[in-house]
Simulated assay, not measured.
Amino acid sequence: MHLFNDPRSRGYARLTGAFYLFIAVFGFFSILWVPAQLLVPGDAAATFENILARRGLFLAGIGGEVAILIAEIMATALLYFMFKPVSAALSFAAALARLSMVGVMAAMLFFSAGALVLAEPGGALASFSEAQRLDLGNLFLGMHDAGVWIWQVFFTVHLAILGQLVARSGRFPRLLGHAMTLGSVGYLLDSLHKFALPEAAGLGTVTAVFLGIVTLAEVGFALWLVIRGPRPASTAMTQAAA
Protein backbone atom coordinates (compact mmCIF):
# COMPACT_ATOMS: atom_id res chain seq x y z
CA MET A 1 0.00 0.00 0.00
CA HIS A 2 3.01 2.32 0.37
CA LEU A 3 3.03 2.81 -3.42
CA PHE A 4 -0.06 5.01 -3.06
CA ASN A 5 1.61 7.37 -0.58
CA ASP A 6 3.96 9.37 -2.81
CA PRO A 7 2.45 10.65 -6.09
CA ARG A 8 5.90 11.90 -7.18
CA SER A 9 7.63 8.54 -6.84
CA ARG A 10 8.56 6.17 -9.65
CA GLY A 11 6.64 3.33 -8.02
CA TYR A 12 3.46 5.42 -7.99
CA ALA A 13 3.97 6.27 -11.67
CA ARG A 14 4.50 2.63 -12.58
CA LEU A 15 1.32 1.65 -10.77
CA THR A 16 -0.58 4.35 -12.66
CA GLY A 17 0.90 3.17 -15.96
CA ALA A 18 -0.02 -0.43 -15.14
CA PHE A 19 -3.67 0.55 -14.68
CA TYR A 20 -3.50 2.50 -17.94
CA LEU A 21 -2.15 -0.52 -19.84
CA PHE A 22 -4.72 -2.78 -18.15
CA ILE A 23 -7.47 -0.51 -19.48
CA ALA A 24 -5.95 -0.60 -22.96
CA VAL A 25 -5.74 -4.41 -23.08
CA PHE A 26 -9.20 -5.07 -21.67
CA GLY A 27 -10.63 -2.22 -23.74
CA PHE A 28 -9.38 -3.86 -26.92
CA PHE A 29 -10.93 -7.16 -25.84
CA SER A 30 -14.30 -5.97 -24.51
CA ILE A 31 -14.98 -2.84 -26.56
CA LEU A 32 -13.47 -3.82 -29.90
CA TRP A 33 -12.82 -7.56 -30.30
CA VAL A 34 -15.90 -9.09 -28.64
CA PRO A 35 -18.45 -6.90 -30.51
CA ALA A 36 -16.64 -7.62 -33.78
CA GLN A 37 -17.17 -11.35 -33.17
CA LEU A 38 -20.85 -11.13 -32.25
CA LEU A 39 -22.53 -8.09 -33.79
CA VAL A 40 -23.78 -8.20 -37.37
CA PRO A 41 -24.60 -4.65 -38.53
CA GLY A 42 -28.15 -4.36 -39.85
CA ASP A 43 -29.08 -7.94 -38.94
CA ALA A 44 -30.54 -8.23 -35.44
CA ALA A 45 -31.52 -11.88 -35.90
CA ALA A 46 -27.97 -12.93 -36.78
CA THR A 47 -26.59 -10.84 -33.92
CA PHE A 48 -28.78 -12.54 -31.33
CA GLU A 49 -28.04 -15.95 -32.77
CA ASN A 50 -24.37 -15.21 -32.25
CA ILE A 51 -24.99 -13.99 -28.69
CA LEU A 52 -26.86 -17.17 -27.80
CA ALA A 53 -24.35 -19.43 -29.52
CA ARG A 54 -21.40 -17.71 -27.84
CA ARG A 55 -23.02 -16.65 -24.60
CA GLY A 56 -19.79 -17.15 -22.67
CA LEU A 57 -17.93 -14.73 -24.91
CA PHE A 58 -20.70 -12.13 -24.57
CA LEU A 59 -20.56 -12.43 -20.76
CA ALA A 60 -16.76 -12.28 -20.86
CA GLY A 61 -17.09 -8.98 -22.71
CA ILE A 62 -19.36 -7.64 -19.97
CA GLY A 63 -16.97 -8.89 -17.31
CA GLY A 64 -14.11 -7.17 -19.11
CA GLU A 65 -16.04 -3.90 -19.10
CA VAL A 66 -16.58 -4.21 -15.33
CA ALA A 67 -12.84 -4.73 -14.89
CA ILE A 68 -12.22 -1.63 -17.01
CA LEU A 69 -14.52 0.44 -14.80
CA ILE A 70 -12.63 -0.58 -11.66
CA ALA A 71 -9.28 0.18 -13.29
CA GLU A 72 -10.65 3.52 -14.53
CA ILE A 73 -11.58 4.56 -10.99
CA MET A 74 -8.09 3.69 -9.75
CA ALA A 75 -6.36 5.42 -12.66
CA THR A 76 -8.50 8.53 -12.21
CA ALA A 77 -7.57 8.84 -8.52
CA LEU A 78 -3.88 8.22 -9.20
CA LEU A 79 -3.72 10.74 -12.04
CA TYR A 80 -5.52 13.36 -9.96
CA PHE A 81 -2.93 13.30 -7.17
CA MET A 82 -0.05 12.95 -9.62
CA PHE A 83 -0.92 16.22 -11.39
CA LYS A 84 -2.50 18.12 -8.52
CA PRO A 85 0.79 20.01 -7.87
CA VAL A 86 0.69 21.29 -11.48
CA SER A 87 -2.85 22.68 -11.15
CA ALA A 88 -5.29 21.51 -8.50
CA ALA A 89 -8.30 22.94 -10.36
CA LEU A 90 -7.41 21.45 -13.75
CA SER A 91 -6.46 18.10 -12.25
CA PHE A 92 -9.81 17.98 -10.45
CA ALA A 93 -11.66 18.93 -13.64
CA ALA A 94 -9.87 16.17 -15.54
CA ALA A 95 -10.81 13.67 -12.83
CA LEU A 96 -14.47 14.74 -12.88
CA ALA A 97 -14.60 14.40 -16.66
CA ARG A 98 -13.13 10.89 -16.52
CA LEU A 99 -15.45 9.82 -13.71
CA SER A 100 -18.39 11.13 -15.75
CA MET A 101 -17.21 8.87 -18.55
CA VAL A 102 -17.09 5.93 -16.12
CA GLY A 103 -20.68 6.65 -15.05
CA VAL A 104 -21.89 6.50 -18.65
CA MET A 105 -19.94 3.29 -19.30
CA ALA A 106 -21.50 1.70 -16.21
CA ALA A 107 -25.00 2.63 -17.38
CA MET A 108 -24.28 1.00 -20.74
CA LEU A 109 -23.94 -2.38 -19.03
CA PHE A 110 -27.68 -2.37 -18.27
CA PHE A 111 -28.40 -2.31 -22.00
CA SER A 112 -25.97 -5.18 -22.62
CA ALA A 113 -27.66 -7.25 -19.90
CA GLY A 114 -31.10 -6.36 -21.31
CA ALA A 115 -30.03 -7.43 -24.80
CA LEU A 116 -28.98 -10.82 -23.43
CA VAL A 117 -32.38 -11.29 -21.74
CA LEU A 118 -34.15 -10.42 -24.99
CA ALA A 119 -31.97 -12.83 -26.97
CA GLU A 120 -33.17 -15.81 -24.90
CA PRO A 121 -36.54 -17.01 -26.27
CA GLY A 122 -37.52 -18.82 -23.07
CA GLY A 123 -36.56 -16.02 -20.73
CA ALA A 124 -38.55 -13.47 -18.78
CA LEU A 125 -40.09 -12.04 -21.95
CA ALA A 126 -41.30 -15.34 -23.38
CA SER A 127 -44.72 -13.81 -24.05
CA PHE A 128 -43.14 -11.43 -26.59
CA SER A 129 -43.05 -12.51 -30.20
CA GLU A 130 -39.69 -13.07 -31.85
CA ALA A 131 -40.10 -9.89 -33.89
CA GLN A 132 -40.82 -7.86 -30.75
CA ARG A 133 -37.80 -9.27 -28.94
CA LEU A 134 -35.56 -8.54 -31.93
CA ASP A 135 -36.82 -4.99 -32.20
CA LEU A 136 -36.35 -4.33 -28.49
CA GLY A 137 -32.97 -6.03 -28.47
CA ASN A 138 -31.85 -3.98 -31.44
CA LEU A 139 -33.00 -0.85 -29.59
CA PHE A 140 -30.96 -1.83 -26.52
CA LEU A 141 -27.85 -2.41 -28.61
CA GLY A 142 -28.40 0.92 -30.31
CA MET A 143 -28.69 2.68 -26.96
CA HIS A 144 -25.48 0.95 -25.87
CA ASP A 145 -23.75 2.39 -28.95
CA ALA A 146 -25.18 5.82 -28.13
CA GLY A 147 -23.50 5.52 -24.74
CA VAL A 148 -20.15 5.28 -26.51
CA TRP A 149 -20.84 8.56 -28.34
CA ILE A 150 -21.66 10.19 -24.99
CA TRP A 151 -18.68 8.95 -22.97
CA GLN A 152 -16.31 9.95 -25.76
CA VAL A 153 -17.34 13.59 -25.21
CA PHE A 154 -16.33 13.40 -21.54
CA PHE A 155 -13.13 11.58 -22.46
CA THR A 156 -12.27 14.34 -24.93
CA VAL A 157 -12.45 16.88 -22.10
CA HIS A 158 -10.38 14.66 -19.83
CA LEU A 159 -7.60 14.05 -22.34
CA ALA A 160 -7.45 17.67 -23.48
CA ILE A 161 -6.82 18.77 -19.88
CA LEU A 162 -4.58 15.84 -18.95
CA GLY A 163 -2.41 16.48 -21.99
CA GLN A 164 -1.76 20.04 -20.86
CA LEU A 165 -1.01 18.90 -17.32
CA VAL A 166 1.51 16.43 -18.70
CA ALA A 167 3.10 19.10 -20.91
CA ARG A 168 3.26 21.67 -18.09
CA SER A 169 4.48 19.28 -15.40
CA GLY A 170 8.11 19.27 -16.52
CA ARG A 171 8.27 15.63 -15.43
CA PHE A 172 7.18 14.04 -18.70
CA PRO A 173 7.89 14.72 -22.39
CA ARG A 174 5.97 17.76 -23.55
CA LEU A 175 5.39 16.14 -26.93
CA LEU A 176 3.32 13.39 -25.33
CA GLY A 177 1.17 15.93 -23.52
CA HIS A 178 0.54 18.10 -26.57
CA ALA A 179 -0.19 15.00 -28.68
CA MET A 180 -2.78 13.86 -26.13
CA THR A 181 -4.48 17.26 -26.24
CA LEU A 182 -4.42 17.42 -30.03
CA GLY A 183 -5.50 13.82 -30.52
CA SER A 184 -8.33 14.08 -27.99
CA VAL A 185 -10.33 15.86 -30.70
CA GLY A 186 -10.55 12.48 -32.43
CA TYR A 187 -12.98 11.15 -29.81
CA LEU A 188 -15.25 14.17 -30.21
CA LEU A 189 -15.13 13.92 -34.01
CA ASP A 190 -15.91 10.20 -33.82
CA SER A 191 -19.07 10.89 -31.81
CA LEU A 192 -20.06 13.67 -34.22
CA HIS A 193 -19.40 11.47 -37.23
CA LYS A 194 -21.34 8.44 -36.01
CA PHE A 195 -24.24 10.33 -34.44
CA ALA A 196 -24.86 13.36 -36.65
CA LEU A 197 -22.83 12.98 -39.87
CA PRO A 198 -22.50 9.27 -40.69
CA GLU A 199 -22.36 9.93 -44.44
CA ALA A 200 -19.41 12.33 -44.22
CA ALA A 201 -16.56 10.14 -45.48
CA GLY A 202 -14.05 12.98 -45.21
CA LEU A 203 -14.86 13.47 -41.54
CA GLY A 204 -14.25 9.78 -40.96
CA THR A 205 -10.78 10.06 -42.47
CA VAL A 206 -9.90 13.10 -40.36
CA THR A 207 -11.24 11.33 -37.27
CA ALA A 208 -9.03 8.32 -37.94
CA VAL A 209 -5.95 10.56 -38.11
CA PHE A 210 -6.69 12.22 -34.77
CA LEU A 211 -7.53 8.87 -33.14
CA GLY A 212 -4.22 7.50 -34.39
CA ILE A 213 -2.39 10.42 -32.78
CA VAL A 214 -4.16 10.09 -29.43
CA THR A 215 -3.71 6.30 -29.35
CA LEU A 216 0.04 6.62 -29.85
CA ALA A 217 0.18 9.41 -27.25
CA GLU A 218 -1.80 7.49 -24.62
CA VAL A 219 0.14 4.26 -25.10
CA GLY A 220 3.38 6.22 -25.11
CA PHE A 221 2.42 7.95 -21.87
CA ALA A 222 1.49 4.65 -20.22
CA LEU A 223 4.74 3.01 -21.31
CA TRP A 224 6.72 6.04 -20.15
CA LEU A 225 5.09 5.76 -16.73
CA VAL A 226 5.91 2.06 -16.48
CA ILE A 227 9.39 2.03 -18.01
CA ARG A 228 10.92 5.46 -17.34
CA GLY A 229 8.77 7.11 -14.71
CA PRO A 230 8.70 10.87 -14.01
CA ARG A 231 11.82 13.01 -14.01
CA PRO A 232 13.23 13.88 -10.56
CA ALA A 233 11.63 16.92 -8.99
CA SER A 234 14.75 19.10 -9.33
CA THR A 235 15.08 18.26 -13.03
CA ALA A 236 11.38 18.84 -13.53
CA MET A 237 11.61 22.34 -12.07
CA THR A 238 14.46 23.18 -14.44
CA GLN A 239 12.51 21.81 -17.42
CA ALA A 240 9.37 23.70 -16.46
CA ALA A 241 11.26 26.97 -16.09
CA ALA A 242 12.95 26.58 -19.48
Rank of each mutant, 00 (worst) to 15 (best):
G163F: 15
V226E: 07
A146Q: 05
L197N: 05
V185P: 01
G177N: 01
S9T: 05
R14H: 14
A196L: 08
F29D: 00
I70P: 00
L59Y: 04
Y80A: 04
G186D: 12
F140K: 13
W151V: 02
P173G: 07
L99K: 05
G147V: 06
F81M: 06
F48H: 07
W149H: 14
I150C: 02
G123N: 03
D145L: 14
G177Y: 02
A36E: 09
H178K: 07
V219D: 01
L39C: 02
E72D: 13
F140D: 05
S184F: 04
L141E: 09
I227G: 01
E120L: 15
L134C: 01
W149P: 04
F29C: 02
F155Q: 08
E218H: 13
H144W: 10
M180A: 03
H2I: 11
A18M: 15
S112L: 15
F81P: 00
V226D: 06
R54W: 13
V226F: 07
L175V: 10
S91W: 11
E199S: 09
V157S: 01
G147Y: 06
G103V: 15
A60Y: 03
E49C: 07
A95S: 09
L159S: 11
A196N: 02
F4P: 00
A88P: 02
L118D: 03
A233Q: 12
Q37K: 14
L99G: 02
L79E: 06
